[in-house]
Write a protein that binds this DNA or RNA. Structure first.
Lengths: 153, 153
DNA sequence: TATGTTTTAATCGTGCGCAATTAATATGTA
DNA sequence: TACATATTAATTGCGCACGATTAAAACATA
């Protein structure tokens, strides 16, 4: 059909350009679908998914700077500042400048945020049930995603 | 330390609530980081990542309804309508009502959109190189993500 | 044919995500 | 101490995502 000596030109049917042959699309779609699956559980707590992630950190650490939260979640202040302000309005956390370094803002868990810990404890197992995924598949996928994440840093 | 007969209460150190023990976070973070890795390549073409996905479909199908695009990408009209209008302004595609069913809107690839196909052909391989991931890892991860996606539908 | 239901996009409002810029503070160094 | 540099958040602007609602068209069926 095509002249094998023809100069290399973009293959109009380049199979690598097919949606189903790419890694990016299932990653993009699965991430959104998983967040959507969290929705009904988090909605009962009045939380969005990124807010839930911030609380996961604060339940573990009680106090963190914005910078530290950003390092854990791979988010910058452009995303975090307004998000944290919304959580401050709900009295889940407080924001204050660090005394020893006025550049840093310390985010501290407040009682109303602590109070969400109890009901949130059930979320992970509920999600596991919802997924109905064999545990070894779960562990394998998680470890491969963490590998990918390292490659992308 | 704790009374073993105490009533079950939310474990303050529930390990399932740790960020690193969850599936959701690496999925969420890897998806964002991968999109960010596409950025410099797509920016040369003036494309955002979701716009690139729409073009992938149109390069394959030439014409699709908004509904069909939404089914492929798992996006609704609230996301697609403004996105497609921006792509229409750039003359990459056209939008028109279907004659046989005025409810449907047909999205057709235009020459300027077709013209992006050539340069875009290199994007997938450049990303593969960027990832530096063994091919079998790539295939395994993709297939597991597709499995997860099916479970989440 | 009339009418209730379903389908399809568009619209609206809210909350991310992120690049780029700005402003304040801290640090390093001559 | 002065001054250049680096660090940390905040701000701005734009483009998704998505739930909820609306409006128009098509369909089903009594």
């Amino acid at each position: 059909m095509t002249d094998p000596a023809a100069p290399l030109s973009p293959d109009p049917s380049n199979p690598m350009l097919l949606l189903e042959n790419q890694l990016c699309f299932p990653l993009y779609a699965a991430s959104r679908m998983l967040t959507k699956a969290y929705q009904p559980l988090l909605q009962e707590l009045g939380l969005t998914y990124p807010q839930y992630l911030v609380l996961l950190l604060l339940w573990e650490h009680k106090e963190l700077t914005v910078k530290e939260i950003g390092e854990h979640l791979l988010l910058d202040s452009g995303t975090l500042t307004p998000l944290l302000k919304r959580m401050e309005q709900r009295k889940w956390l407080s924001r204050r400048r660090a005394a020893h370094d006025e550049r840093s803002v310390i985010i501290e868990l407040l009682p109303d945020g602590e109070a969400l810990h109890g009901p949130a404890c059930r979320v992970p197992e509920q999600m596991l049930t919802r997924l109905g995924m064999p545990n070894e598949d779960f562990l394998a996928l998680r470890s491969q995603l963490n590998n990918l994440l390292i490659r992308l840093q």
